[in-house]
C-alpha cells in the first residue's frame, strides 16, 4: 500500500509551507489498527515519523522499525564509574595521606581504627555498591530523558486539541514535515488509506 507515498524528495514543497505545519497526524482508536498502519508507514520509507500511544504497545517497536537503544550500555558505564568513584573516594580519604586537587586541595587522612588495616576492601564494599546503583540509576533516568529530547514543554503536538487524547485512549501516527518524503496532501491521503479515523495537519 505504498502507492500514495512520494517516490522522490519533496522539492516542490515550498520551504514556507514546511515551516507552517509540524506534520500530519492520523488518529486511530485501538492498538491493533495503529500497529498495522505503522507497519505500512515504515514500509513506505518515512524517517521522521512517530506513533503516540497512551501506553507502550507491545510489538510496536518492531512494527515501526525502532532500533534498540544504547541506553543500557551507557548505564553500565555509569555504574562502573560509580564503583570506581566509590573505591577511590574511600581509599583516598581513609587509607592515604596524599594531597590532590579536586576543585579544592584535599588530603587523605589515614586513621588507626580498631587496629584494622587502612585499606580494607570488605569494609568499602557497601559504599561502592551504593554508589554504583546511585550513579547508574540517576544516569539511567537522565540519559533516557536526554535521548528522548525531554523536557520539551513547547512541542507543537502539545498544542493540538485532538492530540490531547494521546495520553488517554487514542493512538496517533504523526509524520513530520521535515521528512524528505513528506508532501502534505499525499501524506494525508496515505494516512487516510491506512484506516485512520481522522487525519489533520499539526500547526508548527
Amino acid at each position: 500500500m505504498t502507492t500514495f507515498a512520494p517516490t522522490t524528495s519533496t522539492d516542490h514543497d515550498a520551504p514556507a509551507a514546511r515551516r507552517r505545519v509540524h506534520g500530519v497526524l492520523a488518529e486511530f482508536h485501538d492498538p491493533h489498527a495503529l500497529m498495522h498502519a505503522a507497519e505500512k508507514v515504515r514500509d513506505a520509507g518515512y524517517r521522521y515519523w512517530d506513533c503516540h500511544t497512551p501506553f507502550p504497545v507491545h510489538g510496536l517497536d518492531k512494527a515501526m522499525g525502532v532500533q534498540r537503544t544504547i541506553l543500557p550500555l551507557l548505564v553500565f558505564g555509569a555504574g562502573m564509574t560509580g564503583t570506581t568513584v566509590g573505591f577511590i573516594l574511600q581509599a583516598f580519604t581513609n587509607a592515604s595521606s596524599i594531597s590532590l586537587w579536586a576543585l579544592v586541595w584535599v588530603t587523605g587522612y589515614p586513621f588507626l581504627i580498631s587496629g584494622k588495616p587502612l585499606l580494607s576492601l570488605p569494609a568499602f564494599i557497601p559504599v561502592m555498591f551504593e554508589l554504583t546503583i546511585l550513579l547508574a540509576a540517576t544516569s539511567c533516568v537522565g540519559l533516557m530523558l536526554l535521548l528522548n529530547g525531554l523536557p520539551w514543554l513547547s512541542h507543537p503536538l502539545l498544542g493540538n486539541k485532538r492530540f490531547l487524547r494521546a495520553t488517554d485512549d487514542r493512538f496517533f501516527i504523526v509524520i513530520e514535515s521535515r521528512d524528505p518524503r513528506f508532501f502534505r496532501s499525499r501524506t494525508e491521503e496515505f494516512l487516510k488509506s491506512l484506516g485512520a479515523k481522522a487525519v489533520e495537519a499539526v500547526e508548527a
Binding site: F111, L112, I113, S114, G115
Partner: peptide
C-alpha cells in the same frame, strides 16, 4: 582496647587510636 570496637562504628572518626 587495641582493637577498640567503638572506633570502627564511629561514622566521623571521632574516636581513633593514636600511635
Amino acid at each position: 582496647c587495641e582493637n577498640a570496637p567503638c572506633e570502627q562504628v564511629c561514622p566521623v572518626a571521632a574516636t581513633v587510636h593514636d600511635s
